[in-house]
Write a protein that binds this DNA or RNA. Structure first.
Lengths: 158, 158
DNA sequence: CTGATATCATTTGCATACGAATGAATTTGC
DNA sequence: GCAAATTCATTCGTATGCAAATGATATCAG
């Protein structure tokens, strides 16, 4: 308890007593959640090095609006996997920068419609090539075959 | 431009003109960063359903301290992949709950040593079995073989 | 038709996450 | 041995991310 670190002998003793280190040792660095968090961090860092003035969630919102056109804030959130509170903040910031504009749904007065401005459309068209490079750099440690396998398995987990 | 959504005919036209849809269509939902973010979200959600009173980063800090014993706040941050500002917040909250205690390094007065309290040790010993269940549930969509492959490739990306 | 439900958006509070700036202490280079 | 560079911790600002509560509107059930 009071010791700052276990000695090599302590570790050996534990292994001998346990007869199976995997049963008794918990290695944080081997846990899928921890590695997932680190892989995500690395990707965000690569993203920032290519696209400094937009975050991945902001980019996702623009890319999805470019893909599907005007939609409600709520629906957009569903499509880019953000809850209502988060998507509101993202849209507020994009709106403040003139990349999206919002309007009220004529029929259903609860809904807030969101759409790209011409500036937003220009921005996303300019950024998509950079996004391809980001994807490429993120996957650079893998071969083409590994990439295909990885994306298939990752999609099953997401 | 003014149209909220492309018609089926528009899409067909684009495909015909491009002779290769992958070159001209950007599908957010196929990008590694987007799927990585969703997989991470799913894991955090599973974590919260098993361990409601601790976040994954807080758990990581406790687990690492349990593994290596007392260390500096900075070193701990390196080991659990958190920058200095983030780790400070995590440690502050664990300290407020009596799970860790801090002290000054006698020799190097810049360093803040962090260690588990007896309560923190009890907590992490109690939680590690739950963490194993969390890992299992996160990986449940994959077979054993797929899991091994996935973890190997994920580690290469992280 | 109307009360109960459900949906959409907003707000608040808390917890990562990181860049940048700052101050204190240590180490390095010459 | 001392100035410069580095390291450690803190603080500030900004941006997700989510739970919970609230208000407005829409839909459903009887």
């Amino acid at each position: 308890m009071g010791r700052p670190q276990m000695s090599a002998e302590d570790n050996l003793l534990r292994l001998v007593e346990a007869e199976d280190s995997d049963e008794n040792n918990y290695h944080l660095q081997d846990q899928v959640g921890f590695i997932l968090r680190k892989a995500h961090q690395r990707h965000v860092s690569i993203f920032a090095s290519h696209i400094g003035d937009l975050t991945p969630p902001q980019f996702a919102a623009l890319a999805k609006l470019y893909d599907i056109g005007e939609t409600s804030q709520n629906q957009l959130g569903t499509l880019i996997a953000m809850d209502a509170a988060t998507v509101k903040g993202v849209i507020d910031r994009l709106k403040a920068r003139g990349l999206v504009e919002v309007s009220k749904h004529e029929v259903d007065k609860r809904r807030l419609l969101v759409n790209l401005t011409p500036e937003g459309r220009e921005a996303i068209e300019r950024l998509i090539p950079l996004a391809r490079a980001i994807t490429e750099e993120t996957l650079a440690p893998l071969t083409a075959k590994e990439t295909a396998t990885f994306l298939r398995l990752l999609a099953k987990l997401a």
